[in-house]
Write a protein that binds this DNA or RNA. Structure first.
Lengths: 224, 224
DNA sequence: TCACGTTTAAACATTAGACGTTTGATGTTT
DNA sequence: AAACATCAAACGTCTAATGTTTAAACGTGA
């Protein structure tokens, strides 16, 4: 008797199919996916198996199942779904404190891994940031600011640092920040950001960290 | 007709029960939970519902289901489950860099929130740490060291900081660290930890941060 | 026409039972 | 002792039926 080549659980295969369908854009965020009977036929599995797969993706935040209505796509990846759920249970200030922890270490590491090309890119982003502020285009300013900090995290040379840092994006993107900053805020120290890049270029980790801390302390003083 | 008070899905209730059971320590990491029929009876639900709940927790990394064998606890919370999956794809050094980011900020915040009672507890943990090192009981030393750092994170007064920090626990708990440290390592600066507590007690954030950085740089020099 | 209650079809929720597959342990043979 | 055969326990999957909830369609009266 020849042994069957060891079958992995069908439900996992279904999870993979659904997840890739979402990732490939077959259904976009907000869409309702086909009803269970239809998916059963398409995937060729029973209802229980399909439901287990859907439940799994729902628990990671990718799907939201609404009884009597249907199943909707709520996120495109697991990390953003989990991060949102974790952050949601904490205050904005607390989330910022963690983000700041990563900011400081990123700056320190980026200074150690100083790279002319990266420095140039950072200066370019700072240019956009400054320009947007000049035009009073606050959404553009927020976007440029975020891209700058994200780039510093990448420059740390630690992919995990960048990945976690990125998970904050969905939380801060266009939220209260922009609104609060609009009235009376002075752009969170343009010079502060310049001197951060200077420190990175000079390869001085401690100066870079000091600069970040100075900026952040100032920023925090504007938060409620 | 009076409306029934809107019942949430049973499976979610089961998810909550299982999750809290894990959180409360009824089953520890590595344990095998009771078989499906037994849990069905205990929770009072059908097999399908129970399996959906288990599948949900498995997809977050809290459970691992092994066909033909049983279901095992692999993490104590969702964040640690996700974290493990995320960390697995990165080097130990990279994970450490992130942990260090949190260490530094925790120390800074702890110094600002200086509290006599917490300081006393930290000193007590340092005592255990030092004693274990003297007895060459490396597992106990590692445990005490971990508890100390975890307590600093808690002392930051930012629950999210402690939560994320804790997610590193399952990764480092009794792993290569201990083995590597055993040969030729000198305990990662006992005085360094003392002076950290001193800085926290004095309420000097910058001194606390400096101390941590000094300790960590030294520690990193022992890593491959 | 508009507002509001009712009906209805669609979709998810749950249960029950049966059978298949895989795994780890046990016992047997060599 | 090592290799093999057997067995019970546990998870994997399927089928079928019924209950609950939702959103939309419908209809009626103001």
């Amino acid at each position: 008797m020849s042994k069957t080549p060891l079958r992995p659980p069908l439900s996992e295969e279904v999870v993979a199919k659904l997840q890739s369908a979402v990732a490939k854009g077959r259904w976009k965020v907000g869409d309702r996916i086909p009803a269970e009977p239809e998916l059963m036929a398409e995937m060729g599995v029973s209802r229980g198996t399909l439901r287990e797969a859907i439940k799994a993706l729902a628990s990671t935040g990718i799907f939201e199942v609404r009884r009597g209505d249907g199943t909707y796509v709520r996120a495109t990846s697991e990390i953003s779904g989990t991060a949102q759920r974790v952050y949601r249970d904490h205050s904005d200030q607390d989330v910022l404190q963690v983000r700041f922890a990563l900011d400081t270490q990123s700056a320190r590491l980026a200074a150690k891994a100083a790279d002319a090309k990266v420095v140039e890119q950072l200066r370019a982003l700072l240019g956009q940031r400054s320009e947007a502020w000049g035009n009073r285009d606050y959404p553009a300013w927020a976007k440029a600011d975020w891209k700058f900090h994200l780039e510093v995290a990448r420059a740390s040379g630690v992919p995990l640092m960048h990945e976690i840092y990125e998970s904050f994006g969905d939380v801060f993107h266009g939220t209260k920040m922009v609104q609060r900053l609009a009235d009376g805020f002075d752009g969170c120290l343009h010079e502060g950001h310049e001197s951060l890049v200077d420190a990175i270029e000079a390869g001085d980790p401690e100066a870079a960290a000091r600069t970040v801390i100075k900026n952040l302390d100032y920023c925090m003083s504007w938060m409620p």
